[in-house]
């Protein structure tokens, strides 16, 4: 069964269709890349899935259960992790504390005002940091991390709720070349090992075609192609849309 099943998703802002009738699915252990030119509706799609926006029409199913219209906090509790295009971490806290907060939230322990947080969930946090290759920096403040390390920290945070689905918005933006491949290899191995479905957007085509299992292409809010990387790459409509020229004249 698909982990994520999106059907007929639509959203418009002030009469402009940002996303129109988009359907797709992601299965466990799979990396699905969503690509398309600026304004194609990728971010809107992400925000519809994780609850920051409510769709005008369509359904979002997580492991067969509808999560359409739920708030982000509820969707997170059901097992959807997310990383952001511009990293969102807790800058004034150490790397370990960043992950601890997420773990404590998952364990519903946040309201306790007297427990000694520095001693809670340390082993679990370190295990996640080890997975993300960040254990050696656990005691550094997030504010001083290199950008690539911030992305890896985000990944560790996103894994804290043992997600079934991972949404990654431009996971490699702002990273140098070598770092990009490393992060995507890490993501892929985590996805395979824990049977997590991964949906990511990406502008670096090398990253997409090297690491994605499948690719879906959006343009003008609609799905114009979907399939294996090689097939999508050869699709003339995709090439037009991505160059953005003929699409404008159409």
């Amino acid at each position: 069964m698909s982990v994520l099943q999106v059907s007929g998703l639509s959203k418009s802002f002030g009469g402009v269709h940002a996303v129109r009738n988009v359907s797709f699915a992601v299965v466990a252990g799979e990396l699905l890349a969503m690509i398309g030119p600026n304004g194609a509706g990728k971010s809107t799609c992400f925000n519809l899935i994780n609850g920051q926006l409510t769709p005008d029409a369509g359904r979002v199913l997580l492991e067969g259960r509808s999560i359409t219209g739920l708030p982000p906090r509820a969707i997170w509790r059901l097992g959807v992790g997310r990383t952001f295009q511009v990293t969102a971490t807790f800058a004034s806290m150490t790397v370990r504390e960043n992950v601890q907060v997420a773990l404590l939230s998952h364990a519903r322990r946040l309201p306790s005002p007297f427990a000694q947080a520095p001693r809670l969930q340390v082993a679990q946090a370190d295990a996640l940091l080890a997975q993300a290759g960040m254990l050696d920096q656990a005691d550094r403040p997030a504010a001083v991390l290199a950008y690539g390390d911030l992305k890896r920290l985000e990944l560790a945070i996103a894994l804290a709720n043992r997600p079934r689905l991972l949404l990654m918005d431009e996971p490699t933006a702002g990273m140098a070349c070598g770092e990009r491949a490393a992060l995507m290899r890490l993501t892929a191995s985590l996805a395979r090992a824990s049977a997590i479905a991964v949906l990511f957007t990406e502008h670096d085509m090398d990253t997409v075609f090297t690491h994605a299992d499948r690719v879906i292409v959006l343009a003008g809010g609609e799905r114009i192609a979907e399939g294996a990387p090689a097939k999508v790459r050869a699709d003339p409509r995709v090439r037009e849309a991505y160059l953005g020229t003929e699409a404008l004249d159409a």
Partner: peptide, 16 residues
């Protein structure tokens, strides 16, 4: 405490 961690977290990045 976890409460204090969450406060700082909410200040640092409401989005996250």
């Amino acid at each position: 405490s976890p409460f204090g961690y969450a406060l700082r977290a909410a200040r640092d990045s409401p989005l996250r």
